[in-house]
Write a protein that binds this DNA or RNA. Structure first.
Lengths: 166, 166
DNA sequence: TATGTATGAATGAATG
DNA sequence: CATTCATTCATACATA
């Protein structure tokens, strides 16, 4: 059953299963990453995914995420490392501290809402939307199982207005 | 019903805090987004922000960014994500159980495999990477053999984004 | 059992 | 609008 993709045991530094990737895939990814070309373009992501797929199931998303994480964490390591040398850095406490002291502006009643709790009646939301008054129609014809987004949209340039706001 | 659940999954895949926003705010945003009018005009942004402010602090830039991201990430993501699951119903089932009932391929002899035991020669890796050299010129529009197995994998254009997939 | 770590993933915001 | 970056979450696994 699980032979299809022996996602059975993919390794990482510490020898633990490393997510969805086969060791060989990881090696390839690392190799590409070391080439220093940064996050590959989408085209390359596809190519890489295609290649890695020969060694086990892997999606373009996986590859994309891998590079994103790999890059971000590589950068952070450098920051931490450099801060250890330079005593002037203060805010390099990193997330281990942030986790506990984060503002949590929108402190919700539950720290971990369950998906089931998140589901609600669409009627409730619709009532919330009346303010728009622009509702073309109250479509309740969501296509089950099909999440595709409608292609139409309005184009305009207003990005500048929100660029720095916050 | 299925639709709702999917949306919940869309918002918070595992029930985690969905960013800076209250869930109710997210639901409203989703509903507006589903109207298919694309990113709202500046005027609409204001209205929406006003409305959402009833449920918690939120700025126009927050709303604006949300729509930008929501649209950018909803290109085809959902299809890719679901196809990844559908690809291996077998594996998906095993997946959650896999952790406890793992095949023990490596476990049978060692509690945890050592990287050294599993690593292979980089020459092999290099041979795996040759394909990168022809990337710029090579334009694969379809995924090779492996994807055939994946079956329901959806190939999408290079304008795609990977934010939600996985 | 409790804590720390590594990593895939989600998302807000910034940049192009 | 497309891409990229930065933060954070959830989980599996390592360790005590």
């Amino acid at each position: 059953v699980f032979d299809i993709r022996c996602r059975c045991h993919f390794i990482t530094k510490s020898g633990r299963r490393g997510g969805l990737r086969h060791l060989l895939q990881l090696q390839i990814l690392e190799r590409i990453f070391d080439m220093g070309n940064g996050t590959p373009s989408k085209q390359k992501i596809k190519e890489i995914t295609t290649k890695l797929s020969q060694h086990g199931q892997i999606s373009e998303s996986n590859v994309y995420n891998w590079f994103q994480n790999r890059r971000a964490r590589s950068k952070r390591k450098q920051l931490v490392a450099s801060s250890n040398n330079a005593e002037s850095e203060v805010e390099t406490e990193v997330d281990s501290l942030n986790e506990k002291t984060k503002p949590e502006i929108f402190h919700s009643q539950q720290s971990h809402p369950r998906p089931d709790d998140l589901c609600f009646q669409s009627t409730e939301i619709n009532s919330e939307l009346h303010f728009l008054g622009v509702l073309p129609n109250q479509r309740d014809d969501h296509l089950p199982g099909k999440m595709e987004v409608l292609g139409s949209y309005i184009h305009y340039d207003q990005a500048e207005d929100y660029g720095m706001a916050g």
